[in-house]
Amino acid sequence: MRGRRLWAWLALILGMIYFALPLIGTLEFSLRMRRGEYSLDAYRVILSDPHFHATFGFSVLMALGTIVLGVLLVVPTAYWVRLRLPRWRPVIEFLTLLPLVIPPIVVVFGYIRLYNTSSWLPLTGSVGGTNLLLLFGYTVLALPYMYRAVDTGLRSLDVATLTEAAQSLGAGWITILWRVILPNVLVAILSGAFLTFAIVIGEFVLAALLNRPAFGPFMQLIGANRAYEPAALAVIAFAITWLCMGLIQLVTRFQKHTQIRQR
């Protein structure tokens, strides 16, 4: 019993070292821009770089757009599947998992082939069109997380009976989705949204190959050309991801409250 416990601790400590050491190293390195002392110079340089502002802003906008599009796509679908097509659930679930299996590079090459300037729908021919394509691509990447989150949220609701109750009170589909379903899966949507945000902010392949000024390619550029700034950027990116994770935790705790509510 005692021995087993010892091994468990050992494994835990090894794991923590494995994860934490590179991070601590990166953090330490990012503070050493000024010779001989620790300083925040690298961060100052990054944060005052206009490209940082432009690319980060672009990616944030993209992330918000992805979240909105994802919600519009996923909530009605997951609802309808639960309500009317329960037999199709495994199929839909499999479909939403595909983005995890198909590499983004395949997706983006598919897009470029399908929508290039000599195709029937030349989306890549204009900035707006390319942005739209990028948005669609991000929505696809976020689909597994968004769908799972919303579907889990719906599971804790008696979707069929609530729908019938609302119908008998005169509500149509839009009203049911907007006033009954959406508010009750909001917490699930939020946790899906934070994941989506974290994914989009760090995404590189789609943005680079579609040649859009996103945060991912900017990080890559900095990484290839500077010494200390990439480390600072990595720490910033980590902080953003962790903030998202923290917010998910916060929101999940909030969800416990709503789950009691449904009893």
């Binding site: 009976t161 019938e164 109750a165 609302a166 008998s168 009750n184 709503t258």
Partner: peptide, 15 residues
């Protein structure tokens, strides 16, 4: 149909 319906599971809107 303007029909009132009461369900075994109450079906109140939790939000």
């Amino acid at each position: 149909r303007n029909i009132g319906m009461v369900f075994q599971s109450y079906a109140l809107f939790p939000n």
